[in-house]
Structure formats: C-alpha cells, structure tokens
C-alpha cells in the first residue's frame, strides 16, 4: 500500500529523517511517536506526497512517488484520508461543504452523496453543526469534522497527524474509537501522536504497531510500552 525503502529527507542542510524502511499493509494500525520535531509530520507528508524524499524510494499504491504526474498524485490522494493537526478547513464553507470537499474536487455529484454525508456527520456527532462555519466550532468538533472529511472518499488508508493534540481526554478517546472503528472496517490507519496514554488505551482495543522516530530513523517501540 505505502512502502518506504531507505528514505531520507533533508531540510536546511541537515538530515531530518534517514534510512526509513517500512511497509504499511492493508488493514494495519500504526502509531507513530517521538518527541516534537522528530519528524512525525514529515513522515506523514512523505506518505501523501506533500514532500518528496531527498533519497530512497517511496511507493504509493504500487507506484513510485517521484514518477507520478501531478494528476496521478491528485488521484492517489483521493485514496488517502488525512487528518491534519490544524484541520485545514476552508473557513468560507460550511462544515458540511468542507466534509464534502473531496467529493466536489473529484467532480462527484455531491447531491447524490447527501445521504452519505449526513450519516457521516451523524457518525462523528456533528449532525446539528453541519451548517456552521469551521471557526464557530470547538477543537474537538473540528477534529471530528476533519476525520469525516478524511473518510468521505472511502480511502484505503487514513493518516492522522496529532488528531488529539488540541482536545481533552474524553474527546481524544472518542476520536480514537472512531479511528479504531475505521480500522475494523479494513482501513489502514497511521496516527502520529506523542500521547502515550492514548497509545496504551488503543493497544487494548486494536492490534497496533508502535513506531518511534529516534535518531532520525524509525524503530519499533512496542516493547517500551
């Protein structure tokens, strides 16, 4: 699905990540942890091609990322749902329109998907807020809306970058349960977080691998928990 082979990423003259080799299998659940600035977000950006590796090979759905045309990148991104830490909403659109944005840009008839959008909004508990603008919502509501947007295209993999970074513990658990639910539906999930408590709770609900970015490279950290 997504494969890294000896991937390095340099920024500002120094290596931020190096020697990353990893294969994300369908239906897998990974936590990515490490201190702030370790490169968790960079790793996720390499996964959805917002960044290109300095060396090594990144394969997305069997195709090498560096060989993809811009249209192929766009096409691949429709199969990857991303939950950004800062949500990345368009503030002039309603929450429902933001959730439907991947459908709109893919040229799908949004009117035909109204029922899906409604059930998705209900699933994330935002049925009553769907006509509100993103700035009118709380951090937790925004994160749940971002998750709804990430899954609207029925992606194969979901990447979440610190999805619980700005929410309380109760909301963190709620978000986690949504991600676990998605994983049980067969989606691969990668969650970048530094919240070890969340990882411990998740390990009791789902079979997850924990990866730690340490010394610029990935290490399996399951034994540390």
């Amino acid at each position: 699905m997504i494969e890294f082979d000896k991937v390095a990423y340099s920024y500002g003259g120094g290596n931020l990540l190096s020697g990353l080799s990893l294969r994300l299998q369908p239906g897998s659940f990974h936590f990515l942890t490490g201190p702030s600035g370790a490169g968790k977000s960079t790793f996720l950006k390499l996964c959805y091609m917002e960044l290109a590796p300095s060396s090594g090979m990144v394969q997305i759905f069997g195709q090498e990322a560096r060989d993809m045309t811009r249209d192929q990148v766009a096409q691949a991104r429709r199969r990857i749902g991303v939950v950004h830490q800062d949500c990345q909403f368009l503030d002039h659109l309603s929450l429902r329109e933001n959730v439907a944005l991947p459908l709109t840009v893919a040229g799908r008839d949004v009117a035909e998907s109204e029922a899906d959008i409604a059930s998705l909004m209900e699933w994330v508990g935002l049925k009553d807020q769907q006509e509100q603008r993103p700035p009118e919502l709380s951090g937790g509501e925004r994160q749940r809306a971002a998750l709804a947007r990430a899954v609207i295209m029925d992606p194969d993999i979901i990447l979440a970058d610190e999805p619980t970074g700005n929410v309380d513990w109760e909301m963190s658990q709620r978000l986690l349960s949504l991600l676990v639910e998605l994983n049980k539906l067969g989606k691969s999930v990668v969650v970048a977080t530094h919240d070890m408590n969340l990882i411990r709770v998740a390990k009791s609900q789902v079979s997850a691998r924990v990866l730690r970015i340490k010394d610029r490279t990935l290490q399996l950290a399951g034994a540390d928990l």
């Binding site: 959805y48 811009r70 766009a74 991104r77 990345q88 944005l101 947007r149």
Partner: peptide, 12 residues
C-alpha cells in the same frame, strides 16, 4: 493548498 491536499487536479 487544501483542495490539492484533498485530491484536486490542477485543471480543476
């Protein structure tokens, strides 16, 4: 930036 990230083509 957001529309590109959610899969918009340049032509769109």
């Amino acid at each position: 930036s957001v529309t590109r990230l959610v899969g918009a083509r340049d032509s769109y």
